[in-house]
């Protein structure tokens, strides 16, 4: 299987000199679903921003990340943005248009689709996330769960090959979480999910990467890693309840 994302010795330093990533390497094959976990400030969000070409800034060309075999250069950035759909942590940062329709249409518009295509794409994307008929609502009148799903529709409308999600279940109630989970399961593309919601990771991702202080600590089968109590506790995590006991949980 060819790799969707290839990261080789990725380093990143913020303007103030804080080292956010210290030489991270991994490969993700097409169709894989990988969880990224780690304590606050481990560098999860920074890593995700690299996968879509938002970081590093335009002036620096970095050879450490390859998407679908393609290096991220200033020329390829446009294609990379389209191939990798990024769902941000805070829906309010991502919903920047006055209506739901315009927000979902934003990506396809940037990629130069015709108005008829855009109408169809937006309709399909909203249908997919279960928000058909929301086209003319304004984002600030939506609930948290609805906002999150509009964000996802906006990302899906770009037809990405890889889906990168930063804390997708944050601020969602249990029903919202359940719906999002089954929604994500229905999307066949390669997925990378960063989250503190370890139960979500266990359910969705067969493989997990553990980050701490900008370093890659472990990379392996989710169940093996998350059952390792010592590993979890040293890196600010814990064994999720569903792996603690052997009795059935559903």
């Amino acid at each position: 299987m060819s790799s969707a994302i290839e990261v080789k010795n990725l380093q990143y330093e913020y303007h103030d000199g804080t080292k956010a990533l210290r030489g991270i390497s991994f490969n993700i094959a097409e169709g894989e679903c990988v969880g990224v976990i780690g304590p606050n400030g481990a560098g999860k969000s920074t890593l995700l921003l690299h996968l879509n070409g938002i970081l590093p800034a335009a002036s620096k060309v970095d050879q450490s990340v390859k998407v679908m075999g393609q290096e991220i250069t200033n020329e390829s950035r446009g294609i990379i943005h389209q191939m990798v759909g990024l769902l941000f942590q805070n829906p309010d940062d991502q919903l920047f248009c006055p209506t739901v329709f315009e927000d979902v249409a934003f990506g396809p518009q940037q990629f130069g689709k015709s108005p008829e295509d855009i109408n169809q794409i937006v309709f399909d994307a909203l249908e997919h996330v279960g928000l058909a008929g929301y086209e003319h609502r304004s984002p600030h009148h939506l609930s948290g769960g609805e906002k999150q799903r509009v964000c996802l529709a906006g990302v899906l409308a770009c037809k990405p090959k890889v889906l990168v999600l930063d804390e997708p279940t944050k601020d969602l109630d249990p029903r919202g979480k359940r719906e999002l989970k089954s929604l994500l399961q229905s999307i066949p593309s390669t997925k990378i999910i960063a989250s503190h919601d370890l139960e979500l990771i266990v359910e969705l991702c067969p493989r997990t990467i553990v980050l701490d202080k900008g370093e890659l600590i472990a990379d392996g089968f989710t169940v093996d890693l998350l059952r390792n109590g010592e590993l979890m506790l040293t890196h600010g995590l814990e064994i999720p309840h569903c792996l603690r006991h052997l009795h059935p949980h559903n």
Partner: peptide, 9 residues
Amino acid sequence: SAMRARGWK
């Protein structure tokens, strides 16, 4: 960043 992630130039 969110705008750029969806193709804004």
